[in-house]
Amino acid sequence: MNPVTTSYLVWVYGVYAVIALVLTIWLARTLFQNGAVFLADVFADKPALAEAVNRLLVVGFYLFNFGYACLLLKSYDAPTVVSAIELLATKLGWLLVSLATMHFFNMYLFHRIRRRALAADLPPPVLPHAQLEPHGRAAHWDTLRHASAVSR
């Protein structure tokens, strides 16, 4: 067997590169379009900021995934068609798992950002112990809370 002509490595690289490119671009666009809905809700009064945050997140997504796809590229040998298919599947598998991880991480970030913004409107979580009259010195006590819940 001639070792120069029986390697399918170039084909594996080619197919892998095309699929990695298409997948990453498709995912980044999905992230951008749907992330915009979340961020528009959070930064309702600052649409430019929402757009900027969204773009920066997508840039990070592109950088991470293209970088990772490049690192995954290198292989040593694919002498048969079967081994070439297996090699391609392994590479795409790792790529997909990493894309999925990044995607869920991004969703978590959107969730965090949104929850934080919502927290600004939450009322006090604990009942007051007393109520001072707004324009006088007199305090009138909430006797229930006063008697039971105040730590001594």
């Binding site: 604990v126 009942l127 007051p128 001072l132 305090a139």
Partner: peptide
């Protein structure tokens, strides 16, 4: 005028 004391 609401007042909280202690752990609250």
């Amino acid at each position: 005028g609401r007042v909280w004391a202690g752990s609250a």
